[in-house]
Design a protein around this nucleic acid. Structure first.
Length: 499
RNA sequence: GGGGCGUUAGCUCAGCGGUAGAGCAUUCGGCUUUUAACCGACCGGUCGUAGGUUCAAUCCCUACACGCCCCA
């Protein structure tokens, strides 16, 4: 029962003693009490009532929640309990409660989960309070809560013991409430446009749909290697081939890469596909979606993120990849921006390591990452991505160096990636071959040749637009969170040693 | 992978080369309208881990672990 690293100290021993007393007096974990009222609902209804009318109304309420504050003053006490909706104060009086109950109550601890029945009244300072007639412990809490004033501040504990963080920090609860609200807004936004939510495999025999290192796993019965998916893209487009013309999926992707304030090994992605649309339609969709979320969460089109003001009210800026590179690299000669030798020399001067298989498009992307992305604070679309780094995107009709692809940036971060889908199976086959040769040249992130996907394209994918939005980064933006860990209920952490 | 910062009581934090500190919480006593309630007393520590330097290390040095931030 005891384990050293679990802080089995005197405080917990004391509470275990109290729990065994509760056990002696009957069921220590009763589950027959029923709540009738929520804290927030009572405040809404009665905060404005005056003392006298509340006293004459004699409103009986029953609440359940965790005791967060306990102030004992001799024969009467004030406590506060917290339920999912908020907090409410309760007054306990020795002479009002059943015989002996007040003495029992004095042994209860902050953190215990209680059920209280009583009459609503206003205190001298006009605080809505329940005058208790009945009080019971539903769950004894064995671990002391963090200090009442400063709360739980330690980042590591907040991430590892999210339950304690959620008990103590309203800001943290609010982030996750906003997260849920945003995701459900996205669903209703897409559902109202006749998109169909689907689920596609999380384990792939051929990893694909993105440029990233996968996690590997093994299926024992079938004795086969499987990969946790890095993207659902190729499966969703198979569904469009099948005739589901508008599909989306909100689910986890897994990438075997570093951890940072922007990256977690598993993260949530929205991907959507719409037949008979192109990337410009999806730029518009991104604008509509961002404005919708901004209104739902902040009731405004201007929000604040980490001291930056972000304005969604104006039409979002649009620049091509080459335009933005020239904008932030004044010394690049635009006529040479597709010249391999020129670009290679330029990139190397700025410290970018150029691998043998890099073409001018890949070098453009490297320069963009290093010199442009950080400046894209206001909502901005960068479009016309090089074909070389866009193996699943449709080539531009007038210029095969680029594709009909965009990425969307806010506060210096990529939030979305969308394009007109490559639906020419023969072109796609060529692009896969180039990826395979990159892999042979040592590129660990290059895509594999997906034969079944080519087969699907050969049946015919209608002209289609696709879009992916990183949900976690989106939540960061709208909850003003500096780290992805702040918007993940259980962020990745190194294994905790309990020895 | 590199650099910086951090790890002291259950929590929030001070501190110092010479017996380890505060507030809150706990325990005991007082208190029937409190708001970080208040008043009094007590209790609470392998100072992240392992080495090293030193008469003496929580403090200085090294390595490691974990975390946060920045860079690749």
């Amino acid at each position: 029962m005891e384990n050293k690293n679990n802080n089995e100290n005197e405080l917990i021993k004391e509470r275990r003693r109290k729990l065994s007393l509760l056990r002696e007096h009957g069921n220590a974990f009763p589950n027959h009490f029923r709540r009738k009222n929520f804290a927030h609902e009572m405040h809404l209804k009665h905060d404005a009532s005056d003392k006298e009318s509340l006293a004459s109304a004699q409103i009986e309420v029953t609440v359940s929640g965790r005791m967060m504050v306990k102030r004992v003053m001799g024969k009467a006490s004030f406590i506060k309990i917290q339920d999912v909706s908020g907090q409410i104060q309760i007054r306990m009086e020795r002479d009002r409660l059943p015989e002996g109950h007040y003495q029992d109550f004095k042994k209860w601890d902050v953190g215990d989960i209680l059920n209280i029945t009583g009459i609503l009244f206003k205190t001298n300072t006009d605080e809505l309070t329940i005058l208790a007639d009945q009080a019971n412990v539903l769950t004894k809490s064995l671990r002391p809560l963090p200090e009442k004033y400063h709360g739980l501040a330690d980042q590591e504990t907040r991430y590892r013991q999210r339950y304690a963080d959620l008990i103590m920090n309203k800001d943290s609860r609010d982030v996750f409430l906003a997260r849920t609200k945003i995701v459900s807004f996205i669903r209703s936004f897409l559902d109202s446009q006749d998109f169909m939510e689907v689920e596609t495999p999380m384990m792939h025999s051929v990893p694909g749909g993105a440029v990233a290192k996968p996690f590997e796993t093994h299926h024992n019965a079938l004795d086969m290697k499987l990969y946790l998916r890095i993207a659902p893209e190729l499966f969703l487009k198979r569904l469009v081939v099948g005739g589901f013309e508008r599909v989306y999926e909100i689910n986890r992707n897994f990438r075997n890469e570093g951890v940072s304030t922007q990256h977690n090994p598993e993260f949530t992605m929205l991907e959507l596909y719409r037949a008979y649309a192109d990337y410009e339609d999806f730029m518009q969709l991104v604008e509509d979606l961002m404005r919708g979320i901004s209104e739902v969460i902040h009731n405004s089109l201007v929000i604040n993120y980490q001291e930056q003001s972000i304005d969604f009210s104006k039409k979002f800026q649009r620049l091509t990849m080459e335009e933005v590179i020239c904008k932030y690299n004044k010394d690049i000669k635009s006529e040479n921006i597709r010249d391999l030798d020129y670009m290679k020399a330029y990139a190397e001067r700025m410290g970018i390591k150029i691998q043998a298989n890099y073409g001018p498009g890949k070098i453009q992307a490297e320069i963009f990452d290093k010199t442009c992305e950080q400046h894209l604070i206001s909502p901005t679309f960068i479009y016309a991505y090089p074909t070389e780094i866009s193996p699943l995107s449709r080539k531009n009709d007038d210029d095969s160096f680029i594709t009909d692809r965009f990425e969307f940036f806010v506060s210096g971060r990529e939030l979305a990636n969308g394009f007109s889908e490559l639906n020419d199976s023969e072109d796609q086959s060529q692009r896969f071959l180039e990826q395979v040769s990159n892999a042979a040249a040592g590129d660990e992130e290059a895509m594999s040749f997906d034969h079944d996907y080519i087969r699907a394209l050969e049946y015919g994918l209608p002209p289609t637009a696709g879009l992916g939005i990183g949900i976690d980064r989106l939540i960061m933006l709208f909850t003003d969170s500096p780290s992805i860990r702040d918007v993940l209920l259980f962020p990745y952490m190194r294994h905790e040693n309990f020895d």
